[in-house]
Design a protein around this nucleic acid. Sequence first.
DNA 1: ATAACAAACGTTATATTATAACACTATGAT
DNA 2: ATCATAGTGTTATAATATAACGTTTGTTAT
Lengths: 132, 132
Amino acid sequence: MAQTQTFSKNQQIVLDIIEKAKGPLKAYSILFNVQKKGINAPQQIYRALDKLIEAGKIHKIESKNAFVACKNSNCEVSKATAFSICESCEIVDEISDTKLSKYLSKFNHKKGMKFRRFNLEFFGLCKKCKTK
Amino acid sequence: MAQTQTFSKNQQIVLDIIEKAKGPLKAYSILFNVQKKGINAPQQIYRALDKLIEAGKIHKIESKNAFVACKNSNCEVSKATAFSICESCEIVDEISDTKLSKYLSKFNHKKGMKFRRFNLEFFGLCKKCKTK
DNA sequence: ATAACAAACGTTATATTATAACACTATGAT
DNA sequence: ATCATAGTGTTATAATATAACGTTTGTTAT
């Protein structure tokens, strides 16, 4: 049961923008897009991003320093993320593959580490770009 | 058969530093460490890093913007990387698990993407930090 | 209702990470 | 020898992210 979380004004503004976007957004591009709404400083963006990530509403694509909305409505806290990234058109898709996710969540390091979360990024060519 | 590659002066300096290090190094910390050797500008570091990554001698830990030496002597080009990262002491280990690597290399996205490489980062507590 | 606390806000400044652009130098192949 | 390629050195600047400070708002406990 996805408990609906309520966000503050800035958090909601940032979330809206990310959810409307077709692809990952960078922090400063978010900033430029919300200046009309009275947000003027990077801090305000980064603070909102932090909270949204914590809440599992968005994810950071580490290899791109960019942020996408979470597409798994049930992934309240993002402890297991996987993405496919096209190296040509840069399209990013969140992968929700139960098997993969289970496989990785169960993975145990030989050296006795206890994992809390993981992030996986696949790079390649998407269907469209493959045939070009 | 690991064909030995030869590196330029700067590339070798940077590689040496990274290989000697106990953990991931940041680009600017590398820079500060090699100023006595006549390297003065970030560009010189980043250029060397690029080549070393291409050659598979080092990897970038995306979540930390830091660089580690490759521990799989056979991983000439880094197309399949996995790391464990302790969230407490920040220690990073390259995971070389054939099963995991095969599993992920075979993974195919529903949407028909062809993957060329992946990077996986696990976060948690290492053995030492767990018991603290 | 109000005191107390935590969370969010706004702002200025600055730190950190990374690339652009340009001129020069070494190396290796034909 | 000349041509292409990779590497170098340098200055400048872009892009990403955090520190620090004081204020405001929202929640909860009494």
